[in-house]
Design a protein around this nucleic acid. Sequence first.
DNA 1: GGGCTATCGCAAGGCGACTTGCGTTGTCGA
DNA 2: TCGACAACGCAAGTCGCCTTGCGATAGCCC
Lengths: 198, 198
Amino acid sequence: MPKEKPETAPPAPLRRRGAAMRQAVLAATVQLLAEGGLEAATVAAVAAAAGVHETSVYRNWGSREQLLREALADYSDQAMPLPDTGNLREDLRRLLAALAASLATPEGPALLHLSLAPQTLETRQSRDAYWADRLERAELLIRRAADRGEIRPDSEPRAAVEALMSPLFARHLLLGEPVTPQFLDALVALVVDGLAPR
Amino acid sequence: MPKEKPETAPPAPLRRRGAAMRQAVLAATVQLLAEGGLEAATVAAVAAAAGVHETSVYRNWGSREQLLREALADYSDQAMPLPDTGNLREDLRRLLAALAASLATPEGPALLHLSLAPQTLETRQSRDAYWADRLERAELLIRRAADRGEIRPDSEPRAAVEALMSPLFARHLLLGEPVTPQFLDALVALVVDGLAPR
DNA sequence: GGGCTATCGCAAGGCGACTTGCGTTGTCGA
DNA sequence: TCGACAACGCAAGTCGCCTTGCGATAGCCC
């Protein structure tokens, strides 16, 4: 028994079009993704759940990859806060904890895995931009600390950010190890010490 | 014209079996992988190149994933040297440079991508073990430096190793950025400073 | 309200991964 | 040397991803 939004849709339109259809498909995708992970969200399953034909999915998104990408982009964008406590170590701890938490949801690994599937030139560019943006936002924390004189001015924020964030990805993708608070603390301590004035 | 090992194989067996067949398939896999990357190494292509039927591949390896995994494992195992120059910074520089170089070959990304394909419990365990082993070997460099008194004794080698190696993976997998010598230097400098006595 | 067009449903089909049942051939041991 | 059995080839078929051509319809504009 399919759920119906209690809206002004009396007998439910037999054939949804345009934005309504896209919305339905994206919603179905997110739901299947959350329930059964990546492999549950086949195009056929999504189309059936959305009450839409498979062809429409391909016409609107081009491929399964892009469908999942867009569904996840809609869903997980406000996942990286920019704390500003006035203390670099604390800022970094909070940022990384938030990132680790979002990676621990069912959608986190799905987003990661999508990011590394074989790609075309254009999807690869948007992927690169997506992650580069996330790194840049984290760099802000470090630059602010530099402005405060908390760290030495000749440091390389980019290297520090990658040294901090990449291990979280690697633990999920390659090591299969959880990101413990202890590990996070050790990581932050290492990098903050590395940035500190001598 | 197929190459023949100059051995005691007079008219070349029309139907290779056992070890001979496995060898031929693995060799064909590595070659296709190096030539055309992951997507070129389809099961049909590998089987054809090896002069073997597709069915034999599935009977011997179970899946394409495992075939590629085994082919790469055979191929890329002696890729992580353990330098011992007596200087931590130099040791790390060499280790990471070697790792970056091996990731820059056609087989490098293939190995990475295989490592994160959806896995069964057992393949995931062997993958975790594979990478954990590589991290542990790198930890040795840091422990030796600790023994030499080059860094402070209460440091966390594990966090340092992950902070150093993970960015190389992440650049390949998520950022699509090359690992430049400058970046490597900045990374090593950051971590070595973080480990140094105050 | 009637007509037009972009959009959608549908059927058919290709491709690659993977499976299964059966016929065929190597190869090793009696 | 000659079976016998394990190992391979072959054919047919399933499933998921993806494409294409055609007919049907929803929705917007007049």
